[in-house]
Each structure stands twice: as C-alpha cells, then as structure tokens.
Design a protein around this nucleic acid. Structure first.
Ligand SMILES: [Zn+2]
Ligand SMILES: [Zn+2]
Ligand SMILES: [Zn+2]
Ligand SMILES: [Zn+2]
Lengths: 132, 132
DNA sequence: CTTGACCCTATAGTAGACTTTAGGGTTTAT
DNA sequence: ATAAACCCTAAAGTCTACTATAGGGTCAAG
C-alpha cells in the first residue's frame, strides 16, 4: 500500500509517517518506479506497536529502541526489555509525584482564597506565592 | 545589585534573568552609566514569587499574568486570581489522570515479564505492545 | 487532455523554557 | 597595567514531536 492508505489504516498523518521514517522508526518495503513509498502488513504492525508504546508514555527515542528489540527478539533478553519498561515506570511515577505535590500546594492556597469580587488586596493566593 | 548578585541571591542563572526580562517578567530598576542592569529588593521578591509560581506548575505566560495581578492588586479581584489558579488545578489534575492511566497500563504489562536473561522471543512486554 | 487526488523533497516553523555563541565593553584586584 | 571576573547585545541553537510551506512530479477518471 502507499503512504496515504497506511495513514488511513493507522491514524497517523502522512507527514508524521514521513517524519517517523526520518527518525528511523519505520521504513517502506520499497519504492515504486516513480518513487512512491510502498508499505506492507509489517509496516502496519510496526505502527500499531508505535501507537501502543506512545500510549503508555514512551518517547520516540525509546520506541526506536523497543522496535529494535522487537525485531531482534532472539538476540535480546527479557531483562533488557523489562529494564527499559521499568525505567519508564520510574519516570512516570516521579512525574506523578511531582504533580501531586504541585496539586496539593496549589489546592491549599487556592482553597484559602475567597474568590469574591472584591479587590485582591490581601488575596491569599498572591500572598502565598509571595511568601514561601 | 547587579545581575550576577541577583543570580546568586535567587538561584536563577544570569542568562535566565535576561531571558525573563525579554519575556516581560522582570525588569531592572535602572542601568549604570556603563549600561549594567541594577536591581533592588523588589526584584528579589518578584523572582521569589516567580520561583513559587513555577513550583506549583504555572507557565511563564501564566506567571506573567499573575505578576500583573500582584502589582495591580487593587484593580483586580480575588475572583480573577482564583480563576487562574483553579484552571491550573484542573490542568494538573488531568495530567495526573493521564499519567496514572499510563502507569497502570505499563505496570500491568511490565509485571507479566519475567525480566530474565533468556531471549525475549516471547516477552510479554513486546507482545503486549504488539497486540492491543 | 486536463483536473483533482495523491505523491515527492527540502526547508522552515511551532511551542516552551531556556542555553549557547560571537564579539565586545567594564570593573576590580594585584 | 594587565588579567580575571563580570557585564552587554543580538542571534542562533536545544529538545520533542510534529506541522506547514514551497515547488514540483504521477496517476486515474471523465
Ligand atoms: Zn478574597
Ligand atoms: Zn484571593
Ligand atoms: Zn521472559
Ligand atoms: Zn519479557
């Protein structure tokens, strides 16, 4: 199939597919005489993999690594794969912790503000941000 | 004080301070004859405010808005301030939800992987990313 | 045979928050 | 007086993940 059809079948925009190719994530099986990219079922599977990996938070660079492991499954260990996944898990969890702290702090100072129409002369939010 | 001292007193890098000035977040009280920026205690307070606002998740644009409200307290209402804070709270919470979903999904497929030294031929992580 | 849909490349732009580079002046201490 | 430390500007680069633009071939239908 050509890039337009691949786009329809995966939900990725044509430009994104070409961009992914430049990033080394995918590549067409070949080219037609006129230079059109040609893809097959494997391209479809690979893009599906990419979609899934994105949905659980992997970056394109990480996905690139995972795609290599996927293709060369036999030359790599479960341990390698799991290590990458666990690192990502740690990253996600630390981001969640950071955001939780932000939410709590912000919640605290926001709750204290009356939110009324009077001047913010002694608004607790502004004050809280002024003082530590 | 000059920019280097302000940097030491706030923890922001000199380049960052000049960048913030270009973004309209801060500005020196004046300039020396030779063109050096000069700052005072208010600059220090303002940068402290910026630090606090960053720490609870506000973007530079939002901080810019908040700084205006802070300076013109009397011309603005608590309601304006609280609205901004609550919007940010919603954003943070939705980001947390997204990350929680990622973490759960990733956790699930990661737990199932043995993580051993044998080839990843039928690694559950790779398989999970292959199939929906 | 021409129109519209589709494809190509290379390059630039976007957002956010900075950092780096290039090329020069100024201040301070020795 | 000279060297280190510090300051200045303007412009470009960084990172991520794309999106857009310019300019131009190709293919199928009417
Ligand atoms: Zn109030
Ligand atoms: Zn208030
Ligand atoms: Zn295993
Ligand atoms: Zn495994």
């Amino acid at each position: 199939m050509r890039i337009g059809e691949l786009s329809k079948n995966t939900g990725f925009q044509v430009e994104t597919l070409r961009f992914y190719e430049k990033q080394g994530l995918i590549s067409p099986v070949g080219r037609t005489e006129s230079g059109y990219r040609e893809y097959d079922q494997e391209s479809l599977k690979q893009l599906h993999f990419i979609q899934q990996a994105k949905s659980v938070g992997f970056s394109l660079n990480e996905i690139s690594e995972l795609l290599t492991l996927r293709v060369e499954r036999d030359q790599h260990s479960c341990s390698e794969v799991k290590t990458i996944a666990e690192q990502k898990l740690v990253q996600i969890e630390s981001k969640i912790n950071e955001l939780n702290k932000m939410r709590d702090a912000l919640h605290k100072i926001t709750d204290a503000c009356c939110g009324g129409p009077e001047p913010a002369t002694s608004c607790t939010i502004l004050n809280a941000l002024d003082n530590v």
